[in-house]
């Protein structure tokens, strides 16, 4: 054992070279993510940019008239699509947040041993289901159930899509929410219990306020997941350009519009460029959501 420090000082030249190489490799890996994000943004913007000069921003953002292939006067108003994206996301969060955070509290505080491990594995399994499978479930299984349970004329609608999105974003909320709860020092729990708090009081009065930043970050990442989701909402929301009046109206989202229409537009046409601008709009929305999630997480670290 005495020989150990001696060996570490005397390195062979190969060791030194490989050390540097690996350092460089890891450095490239780290920066590549940044390069990728910026180049994707650049290329998406470049495809859509020629149309920017002719685009009336007010009409683009607030008009609900989406007639991209009209033979008389094409109109590119994404208002209804923005409303569709936001409404289905908000409804999904109304469903997902209580479930996600409730599950996080249960897994972290009320569960132990085997049950805890099993729950965590199963919840992570939920995240492994591909979105096209979710969409298929929405289209074939949920649609008739929604029609017959709620007596509505169409089964693929905002509610159907929101349920799927909720199920897809719950796993993220649970794992990040659980981490946030775990980060609350045990002394808090011990102190609360020592003061005679019940388990419910402990969760409600101590843990939730202490972990609130982490839980908020969990929710915001779930929101990001829901906004960006494409395949499931394309199949399950009905894909209908309109401002929904009830939660059982079909809607259309920004992502689904790109997915459905980009494949068959001719490259460089107005329609093609507008679809890329929708991409930029989506990028901006998710960027804002993720950035606020990051800032919130940073807030926790400082504490």
């Amino acid at each position: 054992m005495l020989a150990e420090p001696h060996r570490r000082v005397k390195r062979r030249p190969f060791e030194l070279v490989s050390e540097k190489l690996i350092e460089a490799l890891i450095c490239v890996c780290g920066f590549s993510a940044i390069i990728f994000v910026f180049s994707i943004f650049f290329f998406v913007l470049r495809e859509g940019a020629p149309f920017l000069s002719r685009l009336q921003m007010g009409e683009f953002l607030f008009s609900t008239e989406w007639f991209p292939t009209s033979q008389t006067q094409p109109k590119f108003g994404v208002g209804a699509l923005v409303v569709g994206t936001l409404s289905v996301t908000i409804l999904a969060m109304i469903i997902a947040v209580p479930f996600g955070l409730g599950a996080a509290v249960f897994v972290s505080e009320f569960c132990a041993g085997k049950a805890k491990e099993t729950l965590k594995v199963v919840i992570e399994l939920l995240a492994a289901i591909p979105s096209v499978v979710w969409g298929f479930i929405g289209l074939t299984v949920m649609s008739p159930i929604v029609i017959n349970t709620f007596h509505v004329p169409i089964g693929i609608n905002m509610f159907n899509g929101a349920i799927l999105l909720a199920l897809m974003s719950v796993p993220i909320m649970v794992s990040i929410g659980e981490d946030a709860l775990k980060a609350v020092p045990d002394s808090y729990r011990e102190a609360a219990l020592a003061l005679g708090a019940t388990k419910w009081q402990l969760v409600y009065r101590v843990l939730l306020p202490a972990a609130k930043n982490g839980l908020l970050a969990a929710v915001l990442l779930g929101v990001g997941r829901a906004i960006g989701e494409t395949m499931a909402v394309l199949m399950a929301t009905g894909h209908s350009v309109r401002i929904p009046k009830t939660i059982f109206d079909p809607v259309r989202t920004l992502t689904a519009t790109i997915a459905a229409e980009l494949g068959e537009t001719s490259k460089g046409s107005d329609h093609y460029q507008v679809l890329f601008l929708i991409g930029v709009l989506l990028f901006t929305i998710t960027f804002v959501v993720n950035l606020s999630a990051d800032l919130v997480i940073k807030g926790i670290r400082k504490k």
Binding site: E65, F67, A80, I156, H239, S240, V241, R242, P250, R252
Partner: peptide
């Protein structure tokens, strides 16, 4: 124009 609000498959 086509009616808006059709369910587009």
């Amino acid at each position: 124009e086509m009616r808006l609000g059709t369910v587009d498959m």
